[in-house]
Design a protein around this nucleic acid. Structure first.
Lengths: 224, 224
DNA sequence: TTTTGTATGTTGAAATTTCAACAAAGGGAA
DNA sequence: TTCCCTTTGTTGAAATTTCAACATACAAAA
């Protein structure tokens, strides 16, 4: 378990915990680690919510697929990030999303009840973890606001520019790599892949952006 | 303050608190009540997040307006519901939304720090309130998933049907009233008002739904 | 190197949305 | 009741997206 301490220390759920506390906490929480191949699901749409997942290595994507098979990309998860915590805290019987490994990846799974309820050992860290969890879930809310900021735009052009400018802002640079391929980006923006490719081609020809696969460079920043 | 106890007892933030505890808590939290006229803002886009608001009477709407003046409807708030808690918990310096009274309304405002940090009086209820807050914020996450479920549809027809079926499910009846007028519903669905009206007219003529202002009745339920 | 499969780009027609403008309906006040 | 204002419905043209189909580029495997 110790080999994951570096990423776990970065994880906001365990913020300000010393190594010895972390060791104790993981034992008390009955944390276990699972590995996944690319495309495998760690959580499936319709399942009850029970576990909080922490990405240890690799990356995952949160996707939802509707009745007709249309896919919507909710978020990309990198090491240190959590998933499932909102569903588990809200106690939903059927999660509305799937969480899929976008490459070989590992997660730590913790029963959410063990986090939220103090244990018989009267561990000190439970209260701190609930507070940490509150901040994490609140931060996820902001992520949703960002997705809505982007997808509420009416045209593919506006959605793409809004998304790219947001990424540039978060990376602190006009040149950056996004965690999605074309189809996945289209699923995030809620548009058609072919239309997205066409729009990228147009912007490229106009010299507004440079795009090589997942690498983007913005030449003419834009207000959104 | 006592006249608001009925709604405050229903508020999940104060779950399982007796009246005398509530009295003590409100004093400790330095809660204050404000009134608003229809259209007035209790929270403005760009302001720092500091307060948690609890709707006491009337209703509010969470809206965001982009650079070009396009309005997006995030949610409708009725008595007992909270707003601002995610931004305050995440400590954002500029909230991305405005909260507007959709009729004459009252709110209770509480400094979020007072909820999250135990006070010098060593009040018992702080820990319980943090846990309550966690569940509230988690539930808001589900609300976002629902909005995305609806708005990720590609046509006005699909968005409208998805929204109406979701409302029917929540009301437990195929006949219900929504909290939005046509323009507001269009802003929620992220479509054009005229196109929405046209779609409603079409469904009405086809006998799929009945729609009188904000009252809807679904004759032919639909899978979404 | 060639092969093969996947990802990306391109295109044109059909469907849909947006936009602007106006008509009709409803509600409140005088 | 009439007047006035707001909300909702309607319409047609322009813009945009979707859809299906295929071309091209890329990367991994043989």
């Amino acid at each position: 378990m110790e080999k994951y301490f570096e990423v776990l220390c970065m994880c906001p759920l365990f913020r300000d915990m010393a190594h010895w506390e972390l060791t104790k906490a993981l034992r008390c929480l009955n944390a276990r680690v699972s590995s996944f191949e690319k495309g495998e699901a760690v959580m499936n749409e319709g399942e009850p919510a029970k576990y909080v997942g922490i990405v240890l290595t690799g990356s995952f994507q949160i996707v939802r697929t509707d009745f007709f098979g249309n896919r919507s990309m909710i978020a990309n998860l990198v090491p240190g990030e959590l998933f499932g915590e909102s569903f588990a805290c809200a106690g939903v019987e059927a999660v509305p999303v799937s969480v899929l490994a976008s490459e070989a990846a590992e997660v730590m799974l913790i029963d959410c009840l063990k986090i939220c309820h103090s244990c018989s050992n009267a561990c000190q860290f439970h209260q701190q973890m609930i507070y940490n969890l509150l901040q994490i879930v609140a931060a996820k809310n902001l992520m949703f606001h960002q997705k809505i900021e982007v997808t509420s735009k009416r045209t593919t052009h506006e959605k793409l520019m809004a998304y790219l400018m947001l990424q540039a802002k978060q990376f602190g640079s006009l040149e950056f790599e996004i965690p999605y391929d074309r189809q996945e980006l289209a699923d995030y923006l809620e548009v058609e892949r072919s239309g997205l490719s066409a729009e990228i081609g147009k912007l490229r020809r106009q010299g507004v952006i440079e795009a090589d696969r997942s690498r983007f460079k913005i030449y003419k920043p834009f207000d959104v």
